[in-house]
Design a protein around this nucleic acid. Structure first.
Length: 673
DNA sequence: TCAATCCGTATC
DNA sequence: ATACGGATTGAC
């Protein structure tokens, strides 16, 4: 094509036709069987969230299996999608385009996972392709070529119901699962470090039934703990760990082992909730109240909902286990969908540590709530001192860091960043002040109101607390765990361990005592889950302390009249969840009602306000949240949840089809803040 | 009369 | 999002 004459229109038309046509060849007749592939095409447009049909050329017949990744042309673009199914004919009236290429014949999207993803997308008013991005990890070609390492695991251990002994119904639930049944249960566990063996036995039961199991846990440390327990119970080769932090290669290797059916037990974080476990017999979730189980990417699914969908569709057994109980879990018990596996009150009294409440010294607290004396009343210090003779003491502090929420000593004006208006903190002893939002350092601060140069810290983090306790107990080793530096575990020797919630390292033989400090910060939050969250965090700390029978003690520094505090003293997280659910019912809050938030430009929310929502509906807002962005909260009765989701999809489709700016939709938002 | 441009609709 | 088609506008 070196001619200098410009090509004629006819020549150009021929060229275009050649470019549009699939590569010519004899193998390009349609596939002999099921020549139509229904393909999930990843598109950002809500109104195009449905499968599209493509012709399968004979040359790709064997490769374009359901679940395979394929490259197709869509609206002039090359995109990689998934074959959902192969069918004989298409409903589509026009001519079908051919598949461009099969990326590999590896069926990475199991039909059961595609189906669950569709249901989850519908529930959260999102698109299938958004959910599939969460469900199928990015391909790693080299890993796919690897020779699969086939290990035959050792024989299954006998089922041991001992970890469930103190939970009436637990043994029966376990045997039911092992026999191939699919009982569903919510369990509030007594045992401290024994929770991993309780979950481990549930997995053993699923294995005995010849089925697969999927367990999700909030963070990677929990996953590592259960992984160790399962390796002890099942040996190597019967289970895999599946978390996003494995890195692309290891993650895809583990994923493929599961997708190929070589391994049928998966332990992971929320990223594993869509794991393609073959013949799923059990889904289990640890500590479902933890915010980490809520996916931060659209459509923001919660691992609990994903796992419940999968269990429902696969007719699998369910276990939601925790040391406390979420309102959602209690709802499942109340509706009868799950049975309740909890220890009796008598067993709880013996199996849990004794809990005392120490009101912070009113006088001292009023003067300065961060002052050492106000945070640590003498009763708490006495219990800690006595306990240190018998072993380690855990001190739970709500916030990581050193000095937080700094304010002017004289006029109490909060210290703010001059660049972004964020709150100033001091990250560690002797360090410069730093903005908590943008990280800018502020070596020379003076109060913009009164010119003062001295600061007070109404909120103290785990590091300064550790420093202060080091002075109080000069002969004892004081360690801290929180933020970036989290301890994995501590020994049985006397030590003070200061930790933030979720970062408490288990102690060998259990802690002799625990102090729960600054409880007011948890309860002062306006979040609708603040009370439930407080009980959850304290219950998890309690589980690390020796039972009352062995002298284990806990001192909570806070308001003895606060209902969450009373729930802890009585050792009754189930009763607390019951009342919490009643309160939510009365206040028409989730899970008694279904909430959704819409975030976007004001004109979009104006349209949303007049949308055809299911009735009855409450529209709260819209309220401006930042420049040019408003938020509208929708509330409908629980039974109208599916109708609300459908209406949200219609709104999003309507807007995307008209090229209007999109609105962010969040069903069941974790927080309304 | 023809072409450049706009708008609406389909995208397999 | 692109891509295409039909309607509309505008210049010869």
């Amino acid at each position: 094509m070196t001619g200098t004459t410009p090509p004629s229109t006819e020549q150009l038309d021929r060229l275009r036709a050649q470019l549009r046509a699939p590569p010519a060849g004899q193998g390009d007749a349609p596939a002999p069987e099921a020549p139509v592939a229904r393909v999930a095409v990843p598109l950002p447009l809500a109104h195009l969230d449905r499968p599209f049909d493509y012709e399968v050329p004979a040359s790709m017949h064997a490769e374009a299996v359901p679940g395979a990744r394929v490259v197709v042309m869509f609206a002039g673009q090359q995109v990689t999608g998934f074959v959902l199914e192969r069918v004989e004919s298409s409903e589509h009236l026009g001519r079908l385009t051919r598949l461009r290429r099969v990326v590999s014949r590896e069926p990475v999207l199991l039909p059961a996972v595609a189906r669950a993803a569709r249901t989850v997308a519908d529930y959260y008013a999102g698109t299938l392709s958004d959910v599939l991005r969460l469900a199928v990890p990015p391909r790693h070609a080299r890993v796919e070529q690897e020779e699969a390492l086939l290990r035959s695991p050792p024989p299954l251990p006998p089922l041991d119901p001992t970890p469930w002994a103190q939970h009436p119904g637990g043994g029966r639930w376990l045997h039911d699962v092992a026999a191939g049944g699919s009982p569903r249960a919510v369990a509030t566990l007594l045992s401290g470090p024994g929770w991993t063996t309780a979950l481990g036995q549930a997995v053993v039961a699923a294995c005995w039934s010849g089925r697969g199991a999927l367990v999700c846990l909030p963070d990677v440390r929990d996953v590592a703990r259960l992984d160790r327990t399962l390796t002890d119970l099942l040996g190597a080769g019967r289970h895999v760990v599946l978390t996003a932090d494995l890195g692309p290669a290891a993650r895809y290797r583990a994923f493929l082992a599961v997708a190929r059916g070589a391994v049928r037990v998966v332990v992971g974080t929320r990223a594993a909730a869509f794991a393609p476990v073959h013949d799923l017999g059990l889904v289990a979730l640890w500590d479902d109240g933890d915010d980490l189980l809520a996916e931060p990417r659209a459509p923001y699914p919660h691992a609990r909902e994903v796992l419940l969908v999968r269990a429902y569709q696969a007719a699998a057994a369910v276990l939601l286990a925790a040391h406390a109980r979420s309102a959602e879990a209690q709802q499942l018990v109340r509706s009868g969908w799950c049975s309740d596996l909890s220890a009796s009150q008598a067993d709880r009294r013996v199996g849990l540590p004794r809990v005392d409440v120490s009101g912070a010294s009113e006088h001292a607290a009023a003067r300065d709530p961060a002052a050492h004396a106000a945070r640590l009343p003498s009763q708490a210090l006495r219990v800690a001192r006595e306990a240190l003779a018998a072993g380690p003491v855990l001190v739970q502090v709500p916030r990581a860091g050193y000095r937080l929420a700094l304010a002017c000593q004289s006029c109490r004006t909060p210290a703010r960043c001059t660049r972004c208006d964020g709150p100033l903190t001091q990250p560690r002893a002797g360090a410069l002040l730093r903005c908590g939002w943008c990280g800018t350092e502020h070596p020379h601060w003076s109060c913009p109101q009164c010119g003062g140069v001295h600061l007070r810290a109404p909120l103290v983090g785990e590091r300064l607390t550790a420093e202060q306790l080091g002075r109080t107990f000069p002969r004892v080793r004081v360690r801290s765990s929180g933020g970036e530096a989290v301890l994995d575990g501590v020994g049985s020797e006397p030590a003070v361990v200061v930790a933030t919630p979720g970062a408490e390292p288990p102690a060998e033989g259990g802690y002799a005592a625990a102090l729960l400090l600054d409880t007011w910060t948890l309860l002062a939050r306006t979040d609708l889950r603040a009370a439930e969250e407080a009980v959850r965090r304290w219950s998890n700390a309690l589980a690390l302390v020796r039972p009352a029978a062995d002298g284990g003690r806990v001192v909570l520094v806070g308001d003895p009249a606060a209902p969450p505090v009373q729930a802890l003293v009585r050792g009754d997280p189930v009763g607390f969840a019951e009342r919490e659910l009643d309160d939510r019912l009365a206040a028409r809050l989730p899970p008694a009602a279904r909430l959704a938030t819409l975030t976007g430009p004001p004109e979009a929310l104006e349209q949303a306000s007049g949308w055809a929502w299911p009735q009855p509906v409450d529209l709260l807002g819209p309220v401006p949240i930042e420049d040019g962005v408003d938020r509208l909260v929708l509330r409908v009765p629980r039974a109208q949840g599916p109708a609300l989701s459908r209406a949200l999809v219609l709104l999003a489709s309507h807007r995307s089809a008209r090229k209007l700016p999109s609105v962010r939709v969040q069903v069941d938002p974790v927080a309304l803040g």
